[in-house]
């Protein structure tokens, strides 16, 4: 195993024509760490990935890979000399080579026997050893993905770059392949930068997640920190559905149909975000709500509620309950609020 000190990208900015697609992005990945770039499409995450690979040369900023400057300050090390593995969204298996040939592609400087041993070992790791002689077009999407992973890992790269690697797979297969991929990456202790637009996937795979929006990193932290301490409404809402209240502030308190929440600083308005999981059913106290609909979704149930307030417009909100006993439509309930699931951002 080559010694890796991971990837350090500093103040990366990149333009396509006049459009600034990456805006002052800095991030670092430690040895063996898996960092996810998470964001909606067009946020610049894939470009950041391609800059790390050397497939794009950034307009400004530097990339240091395993203690070597590879981009910036007049340097541009081409992708073939960066020793990175890249897993493409469409897998990009070479149609003119069979599975073994694909995996051997990146290690062709090894002797024939060594090459084959290594390729078969990688195929074995991803469970595709039996398909060594198959052609790419004969494989299913999941199988192609595994071969692509084996191919990218075969040269033992110092850094793995994954570009939406599971987006072509259906849900059930995706969970399985994702799990396997994580195990293979961790087993090989390779630093990984992965791009996805799926927060659940990011949380599943990542040691740390960087949320990107309009070319900038909005927040970068461990998944639970992002979930529990989102830096802004965008991050909070990106990790799942939230009930949003645009609340007027009086005496440092934001007024919502569900009660008053401390804002802290003297803002005139605030945005109050409450996750559906943060709303429960109370025994006696708490704001009153009418059940509009209730559905069992499996492990949780989703309750549509209507909350009225004497001075505020009535609100429609969602609650997720772990209980399986569904309230009846039209039933009146009292609600409890889990304050750790409430995020208050003073409006600017």
């Amino acid at each position: 195993m080559i010694s890796t000190t991971g990837l350090v990208m500093s103040n990366i900015t990149h333009h396509f024509g006049r459009t600034r697609v990456v805006d002052d992005v800095s991030l670092s990945i430690g040895p063996g760490e898996l960092l996810c770039l998470l964001g909606p499409s067009g946020c610049g995450k894939t470009t950041t990935l391609r800059i790390a690979a050397g497939l794009e040369s950034p307009s400004a900023g530097t990339v240091v890979l395993n203690s070597q400057l590879v981009s910036g300050d007049g340097v541009h090390l081409p992708p073939e000399r960066r020793h990175v593995g890249f897993l493409f969204q469409d897998y990009a298996l070479f149609p003119h080579l069979d599975v073994l040939g694909n995996v051997e592609f990146g290690i062709h400087t090894l002797s024939g026997a060594e090459r084959k041993t290594r390729a078969l070992e990688m195929l074995d790791q991803v469970g595709m050893k039996d398909y060594a002689q198959a052609w790419p077009h004969q494989l299913s999407g999941g199988q192609q993905q595994r071969v692509a992973l084996a191919r990218a890992l075969a040269p033992n790269p110092g850094l793995m770059l994954l570009d939406e690697p599971f987006s072509g797979l259906d849900k059930r297969l995706r969970d399985q392949v994702r799990d396997e991929t994580l195990h293979v990456l961790k087993r090989n202790r390779v630093s990984t930068l992965m791009v996805t637009h799926d927060p659940e996937e990011a949380m599943f795979m990542a040691d740390r997640v960087a949320v990107m929006r309009q070319g900038r990193i909005v927040q970068m932290d461990q998944p639970e920190a992002l979930y529990n301490r989102p830096a802004d409404p965008f991050v909070a809402s990106f990790f799942g559905e939230v009930n949003v209240f645009d609340a007027p502030v009086t005496n440092g308190m934001a007024n919502t149909p569900l009660g008053r929440f401390a804002v802290g600083v003297g803002a005139a308005k605030a945005q109050v975000l409450i996750r559906p999981e943060g709303i429960g059913i109370a025994d006696a106290d708490g704001p009153e709500a009418v059940v509009l609909a209730a559905r069992l979704l499996g492990r949780v149930s989703l309750i549509h509620l209507r909350v009225e307030h004497p001075s505020l417009p009535p609100a429609h909100l969602h609650a997720r309950l772990s209980s399986r006993a569904l309230p009846a439509e039209g039933e009146r309930l009292r609600l409890s609020i889990d304050h750790s699931q409430v995020f208050i951002f003073p409006a600017t």
């Binding site: 073939e80 000399r81 960066r82 020793h83 469409d90 070479f94 062709h108």
Partner: peptide
């Protein structure tokens, strides 16, 4: 992405041409 795959797998432009583009 085939081209990019070849590049990240260690092929320079000439060798990518020889090993990927031309055979395809």
């Amino acid at each position: 992405s085939l081209e990019a795959a070849a590049r990240t797998l260690g092929c320079g432009t000439v060798s990518a041409l020889r090993r990927v583009h031309l055979p395809i």
